[in-house]
Each structure stands twice: as C-alpha cells, then as structure tokens.
Design a protein around this nucleic acid. Structure first.
Length: 220
DNA sequence: CTCCCGATAT
DNA sequence: ATATCAGGAG
C-alpha cells in the first residue's frame, strides 16, 4: 500500500465541515444490511455486489434460517444456495463464493471470520470493499475505508478526489488522508445515505441538495 | 478488459 | 430500452 497522499489543512477542514453537515442531515445512518453475526454480514455483503441492500435483505432471512453459520453453509448444496440467492443477481458466482468463503473460514480461520483485510480478502467473493464493510460494521475496526459505488461517485462530485469514480483504491487513499480514522465507518454510511436520497447516480437532486453550497457541482 | 445477472428506477 | 444497484474474479 503506497503512502497516503498529502492533504492540506484547508482540505481537511473542509472535509470536517462536510462530515458535520452530513452527520446532522442523516443522524440515523447505519449499515442497511440485516445480519446477526460477522459471518452473516460477510455473506450479505458478498451478495450486495451490484444489487440493492433492500434486495439482499429480502433474500437473506431464508438463507440464514437454513445456513446460519460457516459450518452449515460450507456443507450446503450449491444448487440450493443458487435458488436462495437468485434474486440478487450474479447468483451462480455468489452461491459458489459464499459456500467457498464459509469453507475457507472453517479451514483457514478455525471457524471464525478473520479480522484483518489481508485475511478477509483470501475468501472468495470478498475483496477490499467487502473486507472494510465487515471490519467496520461487525468488529468496529477502521483498517481501511469502504469505497462502493455511492462513495466513489460522491467523492468525485464533492471534490474529495481527482481520480475517476471507478478507481476505488485511489479514492480510498484520498479519503483516508482527508478524514480522521475514527470517522471512516460512519462516513461511509453518511455518503451512502446522501447518495441514495439526494446525490443519486441517475438524477441527482442538486436543486434541493442541502449541501450544494459546498459542492463544486453547483458551478457546473 | 470482459464476464457475471436479477430487480428496480428512469 | 437503458442505467444502476454497499463488486469481484479471470
């Protein structure tokens, strides 16, 4: 991992102001995925790739009722998992991945979800974004920052990065240099909440956006 | 870079 | 009909 890019005091101050505004606007922002354990959050997050949290939450109750633990999911039939996750899209890959991830947890991590990015990304279907979601929301660990589609988009629009919205690794480095480590998990929830409600991908509500005064988009 | 893929919004 | 959704693997 390269060194964090330098940020000026002004940039950090602006980041703090934006954080405070978003925190006031979305005081209840939190993880929208439903789960009862770190393992279930890991599975829900794998399922959430290119799929809404709402759609994942419709599928996971039946999935977790039948396969609540790594031990049980590792022994599941892939065809049965495919049926249970079908509505989430990419269902063949996702069914194979959650079974293999459960098996990996059993074989390599003594049945417990690991608590580092390095270990988490050894699990099929889990890369950096998924690892950061699990660490932040299941373990309260801020090792890195989640950069999903919303956070990438808002980071570009709000001017927190000069990189393309698809360059998740670079954006993560920019955000980590800009925001205090303790805020990383909640910042992701705030960006996602604002990204869903106002700063949407298709038709952003810039006219009524509560933070448009501090957004570079207002002059475009 | 391509492929995986159903549900929903526009 | 097209774009997008808490992406990841080959």
């Amino acid at each position: 991992m390269p060194a964090a890019p330098k940020k000026t005091a002004n940039e950090k101050a602006r980041a703090r102001r934006l954080y405070a505004k978003l925190d006031a606007l979305y005081p209840d922002a939190k993880c929208a995925l439903h789960f009862d354990s770190p393992f279930q959050l890991l599975v829900a997050t794998i399922l959430s790739a290119q799929c809404t949290d709402e759609a994942v939450n419709k599928a996971t109750p039946a999935l977790f009722a039948k396969y609540p633990t790594p031990a049980k999911m590792a022994d599941a039939k892939v065809e049965d998992l495919e049926k249970l996750v079908k509505t989430c899209g990419f269902y063949r890959n996702k069914a194979k991945n959650i079974k293999a991830a459960a098996a990996g947890i059993m074989e390599d991590f003594d049945g417990e979800v690991p608590q580092t990015i390095e270990d988490l990304i050894t699990l099929p279907g889990a890369a950096r974004k998924t690892a950061n979601v699990v660490l932040g929301n299941a373990f309260g660990i801020n090792e890195g920052m989640v950069v999903d589609t919303h956070i990438g988009r808002l980071s570009v629009r709000l001017g927190f990065t000069q990189h393309d919205s698809k360059n998740a690794v670079k954006i993560e480095q920019d955000l980590m240099a800009l925001f205090p480590r303790k805020t990383w998990t909640q910042l992701a929830h705030l960006f996602i909440a604002h990204g869903r409600a106002v700063c949407k991908a298709q038709r952003p509500a810039c006219d009524t956006c509560p933070i448009k005064r501090s957004c570079p988009q207002k002059s475009l």
